[in-house]
Design a protein around this nucleic acid. Structure first.
Lengths: 339, 339
DNA sequence: CTGAAAGCGCTTACAG
DNA sequence: CTGAAAGCGCTTACAG
C-alpha cells in the first residue's frame, strides 16, 4: 500500500533523484525521461508523502488559510478560487477558523500545522486591530485577501469605488435615496472594513455632487436577513414612493425585494434596489448589483503567495480589483420589461 | 532559529533518543532525566517538527476535522471541545470544510493534509447519503460526532429523547401546542438527522399519550431567523392564546420570543416556548430549553479517536448523551415572577 | 541530463 | 533507564 519514490524509480528504470526532479518540475529532465517517470507514477498510483518532502526540502507545500468561519457565499467562492490555484501549483491548504484571538496565537505559536505551513492567507482582515504593528507574529509569508495592509501582499476590491458607482446609479433615478449597510459585531476578532468602505464611497459621491443624501436615510444593521427585512420595513413605512435603496450586500438586497413583494409593490417601479457582490443567484432575481470577481481575487492571492514561496522577495504588492455595476431589472425605471 | 532535538540533547547532556522519549511520554525515562530534558526544551523554546515526527514515526499527530462551514454557536462550541482535548493528547487539528462532495473526495484521495492526517472527525453527518456503504473511503480511523453510524465510533445526543422531553413539558401546559422544526437544504452534501430525530420523539410522545398534536401545527423551515419569525407569525395569527411552542433550536425560540414581544404579548402567559441547545445566552433570556453538552460531546469524540490512534481496535463504540430539560421563565404559567 | 550519496529532524529497535 | 545507529521518504548539491 505504501509506495515510495523508490519503487517508482525502479519501475521507471531511473534513480530516485530523477523521480524527485519530475515531482518538482525541475527543468533539467529530458522530456522522454519525464514521460517515463510520470507513467510509472500514474500506474502505481504513487502519492508523494508531503511530510517527507517537508523534512527533506524544508517546504511543506502547505498553506494555511485563516478566515472567519461563516458559510456565506462569499467565502465559499473565495475559498474555491484560492484552493484551485494553490492546487495548480501543487500546494495544499488547510483552514483555520478565526474564532478568537487566543486561538490565533495558538496557531502561530505552537507546533501546529498552521505554523508549520509554508505561508498564510488571511481573509477579510487588515490585522490592524489585532496587532498594534499590523503584522502577524510569524516568519511565514503572508498575503491578505479581501483586505489590505501595507506590510503584506494584498488583494482587495475597491469597495469605495463600488459605493460611488452605486451612488451614481441611484442618483440618476427619481425619488428618495436610502442605504442599508452592515456593521460588524464589536466583540469579534473578525474585523473587516469593506462595508465602511462601501458607505464612504457612497456618501462621498453625494457630497461631491451636492446632492441630498440625509444621514438619517442610512441604516446600519447586523448582517442577517431579518434585520435587513426590518430595515426595509422602516424605509417603506415612512418614505414616499418611489424609493431607491443601496443595499451593501446582495443578501440584504434580497430582503428588500422580498419585503417589496410582500407589500404588493413593484421592484423597479416603486422600489429600486442595488446590491453588492453579484452572487450567482443575483442574476435570476434581476438584481442590479456591483460585481465582485471573488474567485479571481482568491486566485490572485494564491498566485502572490506562491511567488513568495518560490523566492520572490520584493516589496509588498497591492492588487486592486474594480467592482463593475451590473444593471438589471431592479433599477429599471420603465414599466416592466418583457422578462 | 531552527532548533532540533540535537541541541536539546546537548544542552541536557543526553542522547537524542532520550529527548525523543520524553517528547513521546515514554515511561522508561527516569523522572530526573525527564525533568532535565524538559527544562532544556523549555529554555531553548524547542518545538518539535511534526513533519519529521511523521516521517520517522509514521504518525503525524494530526487530526482532520470535517464539518460544514457554518459559524453557528453549536460548531464553535463543538470545535472548542474537540480541539482542547486533542491538544491534551498532543494532537493538532485542521479543519476541512464540507462544501461539496467532489471536495471531500479530493481530501480523501490526494496527498492532502486531510488524507495524511492520522484520523478523521466527521461532524453532523451519518455518511449514509454520501457513500452507499456508509463508510468514508479511507483507511484512517474515523469518529463521528453529532451523528452516528454503526461503522464508526460515534458520539451523539439522543435527540429523540429531547423531543419527547419537550413534548412532555409542553403537554403539561394548557392551550394549543405547536412546533417549528428545521429542514436541511436538499442540495447540500451536508446531511444531519438531528432535527428529524427531535421531531420524531416529539410526535411519538403525543401519539403514545393519545394527546392531540395535529400535523398541521408543525411547521418545518430552513434554519434562519427570518423564517422562524414568519413561522411564529403564522402561529400567532391563527391560534387562540395561550399557545405553547416547541422550537427545534434555541435560535428559533429566540425568534418566537421576539415576535411575541413585538405583539405586546407575554412570554409565559400568552406564549410558552421551549428551545433546544441551551446555548449560553438562553439563560439570560429565560428560555426553557433542552441542554446539550456540546463541548463534552466534542471532548468525548476526541478521546475516542485518540484511543484508536493509540492502537485500540475494538468494535465501533456508540456514546449516547442525554439532553436535559432546563426549565426557565419561558414556560412558567404563573404570572410574572419577580425578575 | 542523471545517478549515488549525504542530509532533513525525528523515532525506535538494539544493545548495554 | 539510555546511547549509538539505522531508518522514515524525500531533496539537493556533487560529480559525471
Amino acid at each position: 500500500m505504501k509506495l515510495t519514490i523508490q519503487e517508482v524509480a525502479e519501475k521507471a528504470g531511473v534513480g530516485v533523484g530523477t523521480v524527485s526532479r519530475v515531482l518538482n518540475n525541475h527543468k533539467s529532465v529530458r522530456p522522454e525521461t519525464r514521460e517515463r517517470v510520470s507513467a510509472a507514477m500514474q500506474e502505481l498510483g504513487f502519492i508523494p508523502n508531503p511530510h517527507a518532502r517537508r523534512v527533506a526540502g524544508g517546504k511543506s507545500y502547505t498553506v494555511s488559510i485563516i478566515l472567519q468561519v461563516v458559510g456565506t457565499e462569499f467565502y465559499i467562492r473565495l475559498l474555491s478560487g484560492l484552493e484551485k490555484t494553490l492546487e495548480t501549483h501543487r500546494y495544499d491548504s488547510a483552514l483555520f477558523p478565526l474564532i478568537g484571538r487566543e486561538r490565533l496565537e495558538r496557531y502561530l505559536n505552537s507546533s501546529t500545522l498552521a505554523y508549520q505551513s509554508d505561508g498564510i492567507v488571511m481573509a477579510s482582515h487588515n490585522l490592524g486591530d489585532l496587532y498594534p504593528d499590523g503584522k502577524l507574529p510569524t516568519r511565514q509569508p503572508v498575503v491578505i485577501v479581501d483586505g489590505n495592509s501595507c506590510h503584506y501582499d494584498s488583494v482587495y476590491l475597491d469597495n469605495e469605488l463600488g459605493g460611488e458607482l452605486a451612488a451614481r446609479a441611484l442618483a440618476a433615478l427619481d425619488g428618495e435615496k436610502y442605504a442599508i449597510s452592515v456593521h460588524q459585531d464589536l466583540d469579534t476578532v473578525f474585523k473587516t472594513t469593506v462595508f465602511q468602505d462601501r458607505m464612504r464611497g457612497f456618501k462621498n459621491y453625494f457630497e461631491n455632487n451636492h446632492t441630498a443624501m440625509p444621514e438619517a436615510n442610512i441604516q446600519t444593521i447586523t448582517f442577517d436577513l431579518e434585520n435587513a427585512r426590518r430595515a426595509t420595513q422602516h424605509i417603506l413605512d415612512t418614505a414616499t414612493l418611489p424609493v431607491n435603496i443601496f443595499a451593501a450586500a446582495d443578501l440584504i438586497a434580497m430582503a428588500v425585494i422580498d419585503e417589496t413583494r410582500a407589500r404588493n409593490l413593484e421592484i423597479g417601479r416603486d422600489v429600486r434596489v442595488i446590491g453588492f457582490d453579484d452572487h450567482p443567484w443575483a442574476k435570476e432575481h434581476g438584481l442590479t448589483t456591483l460585481h465582485q470577481p471573488v474567485e479571481a481575487m482568491g486566485a490572485t492571492a494564491a498566485e502572490l503567495l506562491v511567488e513568495r514561496l518560490s523566492g520572490y522577495d520584493g516589496a509588498p504588492r497591492q492588487v486592486r480589483f474594480e467592482p463593475r455595476l451590473i444593471e438589471r431589472r431592479s433599477t429599471l425605471q420603465q414599466e416592466d420589461s418583457e422578462i
